[in-house]
Design a protein around this nucleic acid. Sequence first.
DNA 1: ATGAAAGCGCTAACAT
DNA 2: ATGTTAGCGCTTTCAT
Lengths: 326, 326
Amino acid sequence: MEDVAREAGVSRALVSIAFRGVSGVSDETREHIFAAAQRLNYQPNRIASLLASKSTSSIGVFLLDLHNDLFADVHDGIRKAIAGSGKHMVLSVGSVEGELDATALNALIQSRVGIIIAAGLLLPDEDLLKFSRSVPILSTARRVPGLDSVYSDNLSGAQAATRHLLNLGHRRVVFLANPQTDGYLERQKGFVTVMKEAGLTPEIQPSAYSRTQAARDIGPLLDHPDRPTAIFAHNDQSALGVLDAIAARGMRAPSDISVVGYDNTSASTPPGIALTTVDIHAQDLGRTAAEKALQRLTDPGAPIIDLASEPTLIVRGTTGPPPHAS
Amino acid sequence: MEDVAREAGVSRALVSIAFRGVSGVSDETREHIFAAAQRLNYQPNRIASLLASKSTSSIGVFLLDLHNDLFADVHDGIRKAIAGSGKHMVLSVGSVEGELDATALNALIQSRVGIIIAAGLLLPDEDLLKFSRSVPILSTARRVPGLDSVYSDNLSGAQAATRHLLNLGHRRVVFLANPQTDGYLERQKGFVTVMKEAGLTPEIQPSAYSRTQAARDIGPLLDHPDRPTAIFAHNDQSALGVLDAIAARGMRAPSDISVVGYDNTSASTPPGIALTTVDIHAQDLGRTAAEKALQRLTDPGAPIIDLASEPTLIVRGTTGPPPHAS
DNA sequence: ATGAAAGCGCTAACAT
DNA sequence: ATGTTAGCGCTTTCAT
């Protein structure tokens, strides 16, 4: 910067002003400065800038898993909302095993981001509250009591999906569940309440966040002579695993068995057989989350944000009447 | 840090030494320091640390597109290789439109990373060389002359895929091409050379990096009465688009038409119909790229790295003999 | 509009 | 093993 100042024949302060885009420098001088910077191939040192301004100009973003398109959508939404705010986004990626949550959050804290937008946190609510003593955290796609949360109403989404199945005539429906941890209980709950209301037995098959694991977990149920007529998977990826297991047995959806996913990611539209699923509008979630995060930055004292959005049931090709319903 | 030192009853230097994990502090003192830090909920300020050490302890990672599983694989490989090196990874994401390449690279440069590992760069070679004056860049999944490159041999991969099709008896094969820009010319070239060697006409249909665009671009060719018997798509995503277009017309692969993809991402295994594709071993690519980047950091003067790996043709369910070949 | 000077929270070289 | 001190490259008052 010293060099640029000398090259442009001004003081360092001017160069700083010019690069930050704040007022206090004439257009002409600014041009000179930029030209000089160009000549010297100068790029401002954001590390030094952050230190000196002790600023909150960075927004940390935690994404659970790059292999799930859901998080790519959330990322896109966040990026769009942040663009033009002058804020810079710092990414940190977790893992579906969950053992990286804390590491990723600490990395963000150590990078002194002004706020963390977190999508797909796996840590218990209590732990997250602890982290939020160091930095504000806005949770998206999951409600965390005590933290700003921008999420989709999983209860109503799961209810809509389950009702769709029941309306089609299904009576034996199995919910392929995600690990039942803080923040991810509602889908199963929605399934259970609707089944019970209808006087049916809600069957639950526990599984994990993995397509292959889903295929393995659902296998025995499919092999059973008296198998369910519909499977409701906790997300699209595991629904794909269910479809894998179905295809491996020479069966077809929905003629032999119906399948419903959740999230409406790109995974829900394999060629030929598009998955019935629940759209959580992930990109909107990301965009809204980022807008709210920006607000939080300007008003730390504002009341906690708790924003639920309505998901949309998308009926596509993997659901139909049960085999012998007619 | 001052506070922690006071709380632990030592000087700031000791705290620094303890947190960096270097020698110069007794085990007992270190425990005291960590305990004090814990009590105060202290997290070291990585911004200040980076500034003071003017260090190269950060590794920048550029990923073109979070929606393509290929980059998630590369990311995983990089992360595994970096873990335990004490280096910290700084992520920056581009976009398939390519207009974000420069922005993303500049962000990394301004964050003063010691080296950038870039996967899926779209900028011309010449521009990249310019960026590399500011920071070493290692390109992966693309060869950039003049830069360290760790990539897969696309020429041989495309040749293997094309030969596979010809061996099956296909004569009219169309290559659904990506935008022909620096670094991504080899797949088409491999296709063309093999077709010509066999005395056949290489047909090329230009397209873009998008599944829906691929479906649109291939449509007219499928509708033609004298349509090709096989389509070789430049990557799995566009192969999916081709399968979409095929399904939309009530046709099936491979009985009506064969389809080959490229990359062997998770997109290549939709339920039921697994795609014949070329595995570029993306995670290995990422891992190797990161290992080489680490070496480059320790030895800036070493000769340029130019490392090609052999891809593997994976024959699955979307290729078979042409309809009337028997 | 421009310049001077203090300091952000650390690291690193040196001294004890 | 522990303490002291001078920066790292900026931003930010405060003068001018």
